[in-house]
Design a protein around this nucleic acid. Structure first.
Length: 373
RNA sequence: UCCUCAGUAGCUCAAUGGCGGAGCAACCGGCUGUUAACCGGUAGGUUGUUGGUUCGAGUCCAACCUGGGGAG
């Protein structure tokens, strides 16, 4: 089993004395990742509206792509012919692919689940496709990301106990099938803890996934519509049940506040569509909370999006200019805000890391939570 | 000068003689392993003007004003 992990290692560098927040280094075949880290999402093998050079400039250390979307278009076999996702998109840093498990949740009305797997209808043309743990592994191995995710059943919120239990147990059986189907040694398969919003299920799922040797472990099924207190409870409850010496990935999270809350509770990796989706919708992060470039108050504002940010956008452009572009429907505005939002979250995760290394994460947490609210 | 068509929210247009609406623009908000450059909310009116007919007029009648088209 060990040879599977030869190309990966994780070193827990420091644990903040007061909070237990963690700083680490995850070594992958395409480079090291300094945790805690925010990972931008590039579903279709591009972080929407952001070119690679701009993405490198944000300090992105690893990006996500999606198996389901790339299987439908352009096709995982084609990507494999282009040298896997790194060659395909000419990105030389680590990549993580999601398994399609989130689409069990997000495309709930377009899919049918069975023990064997999930039948999806393509939202674009209605054609049926069947994805099983084995198919997901095949897709993800062709795509060739450094980190691949188990094919899971992400349950909705709210979710009754019986369904939550069924989703969790099936996720566990599917995990075993993923492990059996996986043959590549240059990819780390992360198991996913499910269990919806029930302590006993979360405990059982955390114990199950922890019993399986892996480079890192994910917490799935959160940030699916529940309130913050609920999410924080289940992160706080679940994270300590996962192996202490392995990275913990909280899937689909989040906002700057969510990063603070997650890191405080022992999370090491985050991904979220918010920085890019919100950018396309005109919303940007600042040290003092999010705002909307559409607001009339920015019409003549000569300041950058965030005065304490040194991203390409903030170094070069004013709020007035970006607002003008946005109101004119110029995609450049969305691209500029995307760059800013991504760098903002990555910087934020790395500042948190520095605070952890210096045993001052609690102050960092309090100070930023105050400013962001 | 005459004929003709039109005039309703910032814009483009709806509304049998019976509570004046929509889309866009404006303003504001939401978005969490992307079906999302999306979704939602708010505001916005002396229906060109003045008279008339009518229980009741954006709607019918008259005059005028403004604009388009045509004739001379």
């Amino acid at each position: 089993m060990n040879e599977v992990f030869d190309n990966f290692s994780y070193k827990l560098v420091h644990v903040d004395k007061k909070t237990g927040a963690r700083a680490g280094v995850l070594h992958t075949p395409h480079g090291d990742i300094l945790t805690p880290i925010f990972m931008p999402v590039g579903t279709n093998s591009t972080v929407k509206l952001v070119t690679n050079n701009n993405l490198y400039d944000t300090g992105a250390q690893i990006i996500l792509a999606n198996s389901y979307h790339l299987y439908l278009r352009a096709g995982h076999k084609l990507i494999e012919e282009f040298g896997g996702i790194h060659g395909w998109m000419n990105w030389n840093k680590p990549v993580l692919t999601d398994s399609g498990g989130f689409q069990v949740f997000s495309l709930a009305h377009l899919r049918k689940i069975s023990e064997e797997g999930v039948e999806f209808r393509d939202p674009k043309d209605g054609k049926k496709h069947f994805i099983s743990p084995e198919v997901s592994m095949e897709i993800q191995q062709s795509i060739g990301a450094d980190i691949i995710m188990a094919f899971d059943w992400c349950a909705p919120y709210p979710c009754d106990y019986d369904t939550a239990k069924e989703a969790m147990e099936r996720t566990h059986r599917w995990l075993e099938r993923c492990i059996k189907a996986k043959t590549s040694v240059n990819q780390a398969l992360f198991p996913i803890c499910q269990g919806a919003f029930y302590d006993d299920l979360r405990r059982e799922s955390a114990a199950f996934v922890s019993s399986i040797p892996a480079v890192g472990y994910a917490i799935g099924g959160l940030s699916v519509g529940e309130d913050k207190d609920t999410m924080n409870h289940f992160v706080e409850f679940t994270a300590p049940l996962l192996p202490h010496d392995k990275p913990r990935y909280l899937m689909g999270v989040g906002t700057p506040e969510d990063l603070l809350d997650g890191i405080k509770r022992g999370i090491d990796m985050f991904d979220c569509v918010l920085p890019t989706r919100n950018a396309r919708h005109g919303s940007f992060f600042t040290s003092n909370g999010k705002s909307q470039i559409k607001n009339a108050s920015y019409q003549e504002d000569p300041k950058p999006l965030d005065e304490s940010c040194d991203c390409y956008t903030c170094k070069n452009h004013t709020r007035a200019y970006i607002r003008h572009l946005y109101k004119c429907g110029e995609g450049t505005a969305q691209a500029l805000i995307s760059i800013h939002n991504i760098k903002f979250l990555i910087d934020f995760s790395q500042k948190a890391r520095q605070a952890i290394l210096e045993d001052r994460f609690e102050e960092f947490y309090n100070e930023n939570m105050e400013k962001l609210s």
